[in-house]
Write a protein that binds this DNA or RNA. Structure first.
Length: 857
RNA sequence: GCGGACGUGGCGAAAUCGGUAGACGCAAGGGUCUUAAAAACCCUCGACUUCGGUCAUACGGGUUCGAGUCCCGUCGUCCGCACCA
């Protein structure tokens, strides 16, 4: 039967093998001490309702890794779940009247079907959904254990408050000083919130980044910056006429003799106190709080301040008093919310000093400057130099002066050397319904009381309404009313829920024992599987999720839950899936399938109006440059979609989605399928003994085994695009073979079987189908990865390039490892070489064995 | 402003240790087959060329027998953080 006119029936084939895998339990994972384990996972999706191309890319990458490792003999754990709490579910409730629980569960059901259509090798028996009490009860227990361990505290803190929605907004939800949905000007409010003490692990979270060798450098640097360790000194200043003192943090104690003023944050307690009865100061603080924290606002904001009238006494110079300002550029959240200003050596302090006419006295002299004439103009000098105008520090360099100044501060008991962190504790309270209830009861007599463990889980009530702004839990008529577990008097439940990053901070552990009821993790299972060997996901989680997970793992270890310190041994951050953008005449975005391409250019598919093409950008609903994976899988099949995801770009780089590229992948799928069908009848049976091989068959074998070695290496390095290229090269070679002799037929079978096994992680359905067609009873998923015959990887002849003065003039075939003398003589005898030397004798000949001969004349 | 990554054909990209630049694919052009089309298959495909070659990896230098790869500088693009004291 000729297959020339036929097309591969992916629909039937893919469904068949998906069923077969599921029925045979091919991907069910269990502890097996006899095999090395390999835990690979992709970032679990938010159940928005439909998968998008970013998911397809992410899960394809993970599946190739999982299937490859499985074939290599590893005991593979490859799980999937749902990051199921979050705001979109509440929005759906408000906009469409669907309950968040129903909406979320239905979305999970339909997305599960979509994921299954991709043929992913998940152990679906381990699926978790974070919105179910079976999951979140354990994190309520964790929270209480963290509380006992001193890793949780409650604190008043300044938050972004949306006055229309009546809720706290995360920093990411504030755009240009306004709430992202309401558009209302965001206010700063002081609110009681629960905090996790991530700063308790700041040192270790920073230091251990060095051990994460299989993480991208970029992510490690981002976390390093986020944690933001800086060394300096804590210094207490006496305030004239007051009994209390003012504490500041500085990294430049060496510049203390150049101080011109002190400044405190508008949110500093002292500012609040002084504002009592001071209208100017009250107005200024209110203005600062209104200003918001957007980038644009900060960039254009002028350095401003109000003189409090108070004076601080200089620690080293008796009688020297400096003014204390309230200044808009001092952050309450960093250090102690107060600074000393040295205008000559800090740009912000300089801007401030110029505005208010304060002294600019340089104390660090740059090399080559004359102390008599050096002056600071518009730019502060922050580099190294020699101290001057600085009493006991004079003549020292900056490092030495810092040490000397700190020694003096410590001797005077005014402070000490200290390390300050940019990292702040993690505020986990959200005034939201669709999240995990915080297991706390507030009692007027006893204060905040933990819910007794026997009463866990604190279930999220489902009988809520969304007719009022704010948190439905707070409006619920009965849910929050309980008796105090301590004194029995009427008390109220905490109505805040956890930040949804809480759930994703430990799910990798839950996958190891998803059905444990009384504990979050079964010790033997967690010990066996953890840490995750390879984690794959988007770069957008470089800091928050990945840092929170690292923190959680440490906290869980401290509380006896887990025995690993780092959750993710290897990390691969995939690039985005991009597509061209289109706009119509009115500037409205158009979907790709609303646009037709013709010789005249782009036009609207129905109206015929001209369409303009914009740059390629990350696929997003707002720009309408999305392609629905369901449509692609339905039209071309999962294997084609998977192949395209792998073939065009390296995984960490952005991928441009093109219809032509998908067509190319589809052509390849058919090509391989057709090739097998055309030659299968001419091949010897499975397991046939190798006959005497002629030269052509030998050559083919060499290429086959080189492909095994090269492609395996590509997969180990996640160079999937190169693996695809290599597979195509092999297929091209196999397509040229005419199996008209016994030896060629045998070599062709070996080549095809190899190609199929190598293709299997990328195109698993096609591989199974062709493998069966070649006569195998054991499925590919139960077949081992091919092994390259080392003897076939070494050639007996090599192609050596011959250069004259570094320019290629000839290539010669030489026996491998031939004597350098022979190589040199052969090279010099080449016509092209002789011509290029134009009669001159060689001055020098460089011979790199098996690679190159360079003749220098 | 600080930190980082990157810059190779019309396009996505290869070149793993400093050793034949452009593998593999997309697009394009030509051809075979066909009544025609689709599909498939074959050929061409960095630029210039007097067909000998010459020039080409953002630009300018350097190291080297030899540089896409290493070093210095410039320009450009992208990303992260950003009043962090």
């Amino acid at each position: 039967m000729s297959r020339t006119d036929e097309r591969y029936n992916f629909k039937e084939t893919e469904a068949k093998w998906q069923r077969q895998w599921e029925e045979s339990g091919a991907f069910v994972a269990a502890i097996d001490p006899s095999r090395p384990k390999y835990y690979v996972m992709e970032m679990f999706p938010y159940p928005s309702g439909r998968i998008h191309m970013g998911h397809v890319r992410n899960y394809t990458l993970g599946d190739v890794v999982a299937r490859h490792k499985r074939a290599k003999g590893f005991n593979v754990l490859h799980p999937m779940g749902w990051d199921a709490f979050g705001l979109p579910a509440e929005n759906a409730a408000i906009e469409r009247g669907v309950h968040p629980a129903k909406w979320t569960r239905e979305n999970i059901a339909s997305m599960r079907v979509q994921l299954k259509s991709m043929g992913l090798s998940y152990d679906w028996g381990r699926e978790v959904a974070t919105c179910e009490p079976e999951y979140y009860r354990h994190e309520q227990k964790m929270f209480l254990d963290f509380l006992k361990a001193g890793l949780v505290y409650r604190k008043e803190s300044w938050v972004n408050w949306d006055p229309v929605e009546n809720t706290v907004l995360a920093n990411e939800q504030v755009i240009d000083g306004r709430g992202w949905r309401s558009g209302a000007l965001v206010e700063k409010r002081l609110l009681s919130q629960w905090f996790l003490k991530i700063t308790a692990f700041a040192d270790d979270l920073l230091d251990s980044l060095k051990t994460l060798e299989r993480w991208p450098e970029r992510v490690r640097i981002m976390q390093e910056n986020w944690i933001g360790r800086s060394e300096g000194a804590r210094l207490v200043w006496d305030v004239a006429g007051r009994s209390d003192t003012l504490e500041i943090f500085t990294t430049r104690p060496d510049t203390l003799f150049g101080a011109a003023f002190l400044a405190i944050s508008p949110n500093h307690p002292l500012a609040a106190e002084l504002a009592q009865g001071n209208a100017a100061l009250t107005d200024f603080i209110a203005e600062c709080n209104r200003m918001g924290t957007s980038e644009a606002a900060l960039e254009t904001a002028e350095k401003k301040g109000v003189d409090t009238g108070l004076k601080a006494r200089h620690p080293f110079v008796p009688g020297w008093e400096l003014p204390i300002y309230v200044a808009n550029f001092v952050l309450m959240e960093y250090g102690s919310g107060a600074i000393f200003g040295c205008p000559a050596h800090d740009q912000r302090d300089l801007d401030f000093a110029r505005k208010y006419g304060l002294t600019v006295k340089p104390v660090v002299l740059p090399a080559g400057e004359d102390p008599a004439t050096f002056a600071v103009g518009a730019e502060a000098f922050s580099g190294d130099g020699t101290l001057f105008n600085s009493d006991f520090l004079n003549g020292m360099d900056v490092e030495a002066a810092k040490a000397a100044a700190i020694a003096r501060i410590e001797a005077q008991s005014l402070g000490e050397r200290t390390v300050n962190w940019r990292l702040r504790d993690w505020g986990v309270s959200r005034q939201r319904y669709w999240g995990c209830p915080i297991p706390i009861i507030h009692c007027d007599s006893c204060g905040p009381v933990p819910v007794p463990e026997a009463d866990l889980p604190v279930r999220l009530p489902e009988d809520v309404t969304f007719d009022k702004p704010g948190n439905p839990l707070a409006h619920h008529p009965t849910w929050k009313d309980v008796a105090c577990p301590c004194c029995g008097k009427p008390a109220r439940r905490e109505t805040d829920t956890f930040d949804t990053f809480f759930e994703s901070s430990w799910y990798f552990g839950r996958y190891t024992s998803p059905h444990a009821e009384t504990v979050a993790f079964n010790k033997d299972e967690a010990d066996y599987w953890l840490p995750v060997d390879q984690y794959i996901g988007g770069i957008e989680h470089a800091v928050l999720h990945l840092l929170y997970s690292r923190f959680f793992t440490r906290a869980l270890k401290q509380c006896g839950y887990l025995d690993v310190k780092e959750p993710f041994d290897g990390l691969l951050t995939q690039g985005m899936v991009c597509h061209e953008t289109y706009k119509d005449q009115s500037g409205a975005w158009l979907y790709p399938d609303e646009v037709v391409k013709s010789e005249a250019g782009l036009a609207h598919a129905t109206t015929g109006q001209p369409v303009t093409q914009g740059r390629s950008e990350k696929m997003s609903k707002s720009k309408r440059n999305t392609v629905d994976p369901a449509y692609i899988i339905d039209t071309y099949g999962a294997d084609t979609a998977r192949l395209f995801m792998l073939s065009d770009s390296p995984p960490e780089r952005d991928l441009e989605w093109t219809e032509a590229g998908v067509d190319g992948a589809w052509r390849y799928v058919n090509r391989l399928w057709r090739l097998v069908g055309q030659v299968v009848d001419a091949l010897p049976p499975v397991g046939a003994v190798m006959p005497e091989l002629g030269a052509a068959a030998q050559k083919l074998r060499r290429q086959v085994h080189k492909t095994i070695a090269g492609l395996s290496d590509d997969l180990e390095r996640f160079a999937f695009n190169k693996a695809v290229a290599r597979l195509r090269e092999l297929t091209n070679a196999l397509g040229d073979v005419k199996p008209d002799s016994a030896d060629l037929a045998w070599a062709l079978r070996e080549g095809l079987e190899t190609a199929i096994l190598l293709a299997a992680p990328m195109m698993p359905h096609l591989a199974e189908e062709l493998w069966a067609e070649l006569g195998h009873d054991v499925a590919v998923v139960n077949s081992p990865w091919p092994v390259a015959d080392a003897a076939l990887l070494v050639e007996d002849t090599v192609t050596v390039a011959v250069q004259v003065n570094g320019k290629l003039r000839a290539t010669i075939e030489l026996p491998k490892d031939v004597d350098t003398k022979v190589a040199e003589e052969t090279a010099l005898a080449q016509a092209g070489v002789i011509a290029a030397m134009s009669g001159k004798p060689p001055r020098k000949v460089v011979v790199v064995p098996n690679r190159i001969v360079n003749v220098v004349v």
